[in-house]
Amino acid sequence: MFEQYFPIFVLVTVVTIMALGMLVLSHLLGRKKGTKRKLMPYECGIEPEEDARQRFPVKFYLVALMFIVFDIEVVFLYPWAVIYKQLALFGLIEMGIFILILMVGYVYILKKGALKWE
């Protein structure tokens, strides 16, 4: 059963070896002369102030939350699509109801203003 996935592991191995090999090769070939300024974070020549990792607006996380909800629901549509022709009318109505429920959630986040970024 898992035999059909074997080539994926072969390609993973090949690509990883290639990538690692080229990185090591470039590390060996390239000159190594790090000065203090060269090893500073690049901010257009201005001395960096404070830590780069600072707090971010919550809007970014809100998008991630919405993504998780909707993406999981969308993945449910894939098995449905594959056997759609066998399900016929039942499948169409069933999925109509599913998408309707999805839209209720969508309208809710729209009304709550989660999609306002201005």
Partner: peptide, 12 residues
């Protein structure tokens, strides 16, 4: 060219 360039890993 990119292969022989210096591999800089900044401190931070």
């Amino acid at each position: 060219k990119l292969l022989v360039k210096e591999d800089i890993i900044p401190q931070a």
